[in-house]
Each structure stands twice: as C-alpha cells, then as structure tokens.
Design a protein around this nucleic acid. Structure first.
Lengths: 238, 238
DNA sequence: CGCGGCTTTGATGTTCATCAAGTAAAGTGG
DNA sequence: CCACTTTACTTGATGAACATCAAAGCCGCG
C-alpha cells in the first residue's frame, strides 16, 4: 500500500473537489469550508483490474471512496478459502464496514475493474463527525445502509437453492451493476462461486443449463440475459 | 406495540437513570444534562419469554436498549421460513441495524427470555447526534461493531459443515451468553436450526451424536458441555 | 387423562461437492 | 507470430452430505 501511495498518488491539491461526485453525496451537509478541510488530506489512486487495494490486517488510516470502477470485499479463512462479502461500485459504502469498529481491516479489498479510489484520512473524518452533526447523521445512514445491504444479501443467498443463487447473481450484475441485459462479467466463475457459496463446477453447470434452456447467452465473460421473466421466476422459486 | 406502551410502560421519570447500565456504556460521552434530556423520553417495558417486541413493518420511532434478558432478531421470508439473524443480550446493539437506514423495521424482534427493554425516542437520539460529536462517534462505533458481528457470524456459519455449526452454536451459548458449561437453552431445536441454516432434525441428530460421543449432556433444554476441547476441534475442523 | 407441540430416531431420496479428464482461452518467451 | 505453458472453463461420473418424510416417544398443560 505504501509504495502505491508514493508511486501513484494524486494529491488533493491537484484534484478539484468541485468535480468530485462524492462531495455531492457524502458531504452534502458539509459547509464548503469543511469539505476543503477534508479534501486537503485526500489522496487519489488508480488501481488496475485484479490489483490489491487493502489487505486484511492493514491498519485503518483512511476512509475509501470509490470514484470509479468496481471492487470486491472478501474474507480469506485459514484454509485459504475465500468468501466474497460484497461487490461495491461508486456510491456504495460497503467497504466501510469495519472502519469505526476496528483499527485493522478484517477483510481484503481488490479491484475487479480498473478503479479510481479516494483515500481520506480517517482522523479528518472523525474530526468532521465531532464538529458537524449533519455529517455524522449522514455517515450513520451510509454505514447503516451498507451493512443492511450486506446482511440482506446473506439472507437472500442462504434461502435459495443453487439455481436460485445463480439466477440471483446474474440479475444482480445485470440490474444493480451494469443496468443492461448484456454485460461482461467482471469476475471469474470461481469468484461467482465465492459470492454465493457454492462449488465452481456447479456455477458453470447451472449457467450451462440456463444457456440450454435459452434463458441466457454465454460467450465466455460476456453474458446476455434473454429471458428475464424466467430467470426471475427461478430466482424466486429456486 | 401501542397497547403494550399504554398497558405496561414505566415512564422515564420513575426509572432513575443513575441505575441505568446503558448510560455508563452508551452515554459515557454525554454530559449529564444531555442524558437527562434523553431519559425524559424513555419508556421501559417488560416482555415475557416468547413475546413479540417489534414486528417487521413497524415504524421506527424508538431506539431499543436491552436492560435485561435475551432477544432474537429474525427475518420471515415469504414462504414463512424464519432465519434468525442475531441473538442479543444487554450491551449488544445488533437490533439497531436498520435504525438509521430505514423508516420501518425489516426484521422481527421477540424476547426469548423475560426481558426489560428501554425505548428511547429516535428523534431525541438524532438530536443528540447533531449536538454531541462524541456521542455520534460512540454510536458509529456501536453500530459498526454490531454489524460486524452479524456479518462475521454469517461467514463463520457458512464455511462450516453441520457438525461444525452445531458445535459453534453450543459454544456460542456457553461462552458468549451464559459464560458457563451448563446452561438452559433459551431456544427450541427449530430455532437453533434457524440460526445456523439447517434442518431441525439434523440439529437434534447431531446433538445426539455429541451426547453419544460423551461431548455434551442433554436433559431436554438443559445442556452441559463436558468436553470443550473436542467440541472446539469439531467447531474448527467441521 | 388426553391433546398438541416439541423432540427423537430411522429410512429414503435429492441436492450438491468432489474427483477426474478434457477443452478453450490467455499469457509467455523465443 | 508461433509453440509452449498456464490458467480458466466445461462436462460427466460418483459418492457424501444433507433435507425430507414418516412414525413414535415425551412432556407440559388444560
């Protein structure tokens, strides 16, 4: 991480906060004096696809904001099995889950598409919370929504059979991430398996079933959902 | 809920906040003027075992604090299958998960032991956040820890086989909740199944296995863990 | 005492992970 | 740009893990 900071960082002074989409969203309650104060400490870094952003065990010094791209938050258990907790796009805040409860990250974060990440000193965020009540409320809300989403996701996945899970995840990418019936999967089959807690072979097998049933079209990473209705029925009824 | 408020409520004026354990924990940063301010709006209610406290869909008007007892937070899906998200005891804050992200509760809450719950107006909590930065930080921390616990729980359960899950939950009750090798299960076998995502019969079957293997002693609801070491190995290795 | 709900055990079948083996794609070095 | 290596993807076969079904025992309660 530190190398990256030195090598690739674009400091706040260069990046004009007026352009920063995050300000609109996150700092809507922050008077402009405050937002400048936060942005001074800002560091912007570009990550390539598959590049590591945060490792489990890293000290939490900064709050992350995704300006652009797509990242995954995942847990590596002792037997090296990886479980993907969340896929986050700009305006998501799910990577904040342990920022106020731990001093060290519990999960790994890496880019699954080329991504631009803003790093804002956590100390400055805390100062802002102390000084600005509206900002605190806004942050509480963001954190709550993010946790809620993750928890809801676990509940949704656990109650489904394998076909239901694959349908769920395909519709997630189509509707939540790419907002299109055709999209390029940003993750491998193995990573899909890690998102919905099943074996890689079965992800492939069931995707093939969907293909044979003419519900989707597959061209390696490119997926087209041809029959939303049936896929949604499978998602609901398993 | 409203009937209960009218029938059983003990208003804040009666309950002396000096005795309230929550104040120590939650409002440690709140000047006494502030804590009085919050406590004025406080309503304390006793619930019997199995009594409903919050229903999914209820409007969020109050923040809950458990003074005493044990509650479960659970999700009821459309097919009436229940998934228990968390068991909470005093000082836990896991029942707060959607208090800052939603206007209506998404999950049900009910008492699994006789419990005393404090209800504090959410508006007053928000006022406190706006006025008192330290309180905001403290609340952010509590919420973060609570969500983190729930997420961690899902990860721990999902990666285990059935024997590992039952071991996990028995050790949870023994270590986290009752801090004793002998305890009375506050939940039915069916509810254990709902906590760790498995069939009721298999919970029973595996508990019987543990009994036959002389790892635990079972007398209906009363459980004694006789061999922590082996149970922990089963928890770790499945 | 008898009813209903919770618990227990056994038998059965389904779902799913795992193993194995082959194919396609993508990266690597000459 | 082509052979080579490696990695990702795919399909089939097998067995294990688990859910479901069925039936009986137990316990508390009116």
């Amino acid at each position: 991480m530190n190398d990256k900071f030195n090598k690739k960082a674009v400091r706040g002074s260069i990046c004009d906060c007026k352009d920063c989409v995050l300000r609109e969203l996150m700092f809507i309650h922050v008077p402009s004096s405050g937002s400048k104060y936060v942005c001074k400490s800002k560091v912007e870094i570009k990550f390539n696809k598959d590049e590591n952003i945060i490792s489990s065990g890293d000290e939490i010094k900064n709050m992350l904001c995704i300006k652009d791209g797509l990242i995954k938050i995942y847990y590596t258990s002792k037997n090296n099995k990886e479980q993907i907790i969340s896929i986050a796009k700009p305006y998501d805040f799910s990577y904040l889950i342990n920022i106020f409860s731990n001093n060290y990250y519990k999960y790994n974060i890496s880019a699954i598409e080329d991504s631009t990440i803003c790093f804002i000193s956590i100390d400055n965020i805390k100062k802002m919370v102390l000084e600005n009540g509206s900002f605190a409320i806004s942050l509480l809300n963001k954190l709550s929504v993010a946790s809620d989403k993750i928890i809801n996701n676990f509940l949704e996945i656990n109650k489904r059979n394998l076909r239901g899970r694959v349908a769920y995840i395909l519709l997630f990418f189509s509707k939540e991430i790419y907002k299109s019936s055709v999209f390029i999967l940003p993750v491998s089959r193995k990573e899909i398996a890690e998102m919905i807690d099943m074996a890689t072979e079965n992800v492939i097998r069931i995707m093939s079933e969907f293909r044979i049933e003419d519900i989707i079209r597959i061209h390696t990473k490119e997926i087209e959902i041809k029959d939303f209705k049936r896929l949604e029925i499978i998602m609901e009824k398993g």
